[in-house]
Amino acid sequence: MTAIILQVVVSGLLLGGIYALVSVGLTLIFGVSRIKNFAHGDLVMVGMYVTYALASATKLDPYLLAPLVVVLLFAFGLFLSFALIRPIQGAPQVAQIFATVGLGLVLQNLALMIFGADFRSTASVVSGKVLRFAGLALPASLLIAFLVAMAVIGGLTAFLRLSLTGKAMRAIAQDRRAASLMSIDVKRIDMLTFGLGAACAGLAGALLAPVYPVFPTIGVNLVLVCFVVVVLGGLGSVEGALIGGLLIGLVETLSGFFLGSAMSQIAYFLVFIAVLCLRPAGLFGQRGSETLGS
């Protein structure tokens, strides 16, 4: 029994690592630019489809293509930031919410028109390989995603703490006006942040492609999990996204194991509602971020 529970916990942590990776871009964009990107899951979907398309065109392994996907999504993020996000900065509330909702609709249906509604899976050499370690089964593709997620989150944390650009991002996150008075180019950093967030979504997409089949509305499921993770961990906190992701992964697998699969879907929404009601700033939220809902 304990062996099974240990296995469930490990699976939960692996799943949580993926959730953390998917969520880290969302939390970064929110923290710095205060943009609630309802299309974040759809950016992951775009990453998955780009990986799928590149892998089927070049016959290369999806993992080798991941850097290219990241670069493409970074560029796409810069474009979106320029064309869509910058105009809605400081715009009325309705624009801030529904512009990215509209972007999500556009991306989902563009994918539907190009690839159709079928599930598409991207095969890799590690697909189906399972590592066995002390009686635990670790699917190789999940393990890779988990390890990369940890590396990326570690790298991002270091980047935010050590580099000048990262410090500028943190300064903007704390006080946008004061940062602009300190001659930080707020618009450039906003754009860079959105690009970086989209690149994280792209990386998540590339790593998810060999794990899950992709379909046009997969982003809708993902973005909800992302927001649960990010609100739980604290909007704007990279460490929070990691902890939140791992917790939600555990909640999902443990509730699935003990209460059945239907409950596991409901469980994280219930956690979400509880967090929103009890502590909207999340576990590691920035000072006062609970009032930033507006």
């Binding site: 909800l224 609100v231 979400f272 509602i273 929103l276």
Partner: peptide
Amino acid sequence: LTLRLRGAFFALATIAFAEVLRIAVVN
């Protein structure tokens, strides 16, 4: 439950409630 929430947070909370209901109905 969501009186304190504004804007996007309220929108997210309403999505969560509606999804709980949908999953409950499916099951």
